[in-house]
């Protein structure tokens, strides 16, 4: 089936099978391999991208459902080669180790801060409940989001 959508600001048109998930579409059809797949049950959040401005688990959206939408992936977050403030904060505060959950974490953090520019620690922790990290114990991820909030508000 033919789908047309905007990905990271570019209009793309592709022919996909109905079985293709948005995550597979991004990875296999567009080679945007920053979106990772860590589970089959919509639990881990590694595949999080934004769809029409909202964080979604792209493994649980069919590519055909994303027809006509605007998708931003981790690859589309930084502008002109400079890191987005959330990416910057993750780097500054060691919010990542193996890097596999990182794109999903960052995309979710961007969403959290869009909705709540001054989240408390508990609000950040709740906001990240749909994303697993096995490396960091979440400590520096939460710190990173706190600092990202500060720099976005500055």
């Amino acid at each position: 089936m033919e789908i047309n959508l905007s990905v990271n600001g570019s209009q793309v048109a592709r022919d996909v099978t109905p079985m293709t998930t948005l995550s597979d579409f991004l990875r296999e059809h567009l080679s945007l391999t920053g979106t990772h797949i860590g589970c089959d049950t919509s639990s881990c959040g590694a595949c999080t991208v934004t769809m029409d401005g909202k964080a979604v688990k792209s493994c649980t959206v069919l590519a055909v459902q994303a027809n006509g939408s605007e998708i931003i992936t981790i690859e589309g977050l930084s502008e002109n080669g400079s890191l987005h403030p959330v990416q910057e904060a993750f780097k500054e505060h060691h919010g990542l180790q193996c890097g596999f959950c990182t794109p999903g974490m960052v995309m979710t953090a961007v969403d959290i801060l869009q909705n709540n520019p001054n989240p408390t620690e508990q609000e950040i922790r709740h906001g990240l409940e749909g994303n697993f990290c096995r490396c960091t114990g979440y400590h520096n991820i939460v710190k990173s989001v706190q600092h990202a909030a500060q720099s976005l508000n500055a």
């Binding site: 990875r27 080679s31 391999t33 979106t35 990772h36 690859e75 890191l83 990416q87 780097k91 890097g99």
Partner: peptide
């Protein structure tokens, strides 16, 4: 970190 934060890591499943 820059490559991981921008989706440019090279994990095995990323290779085609």
């Amino acid at each position: 970190d820059n490559r991981f934060l921008t989706g440019k890591g090279r994990y095995t499943d990323d290779i085609k």
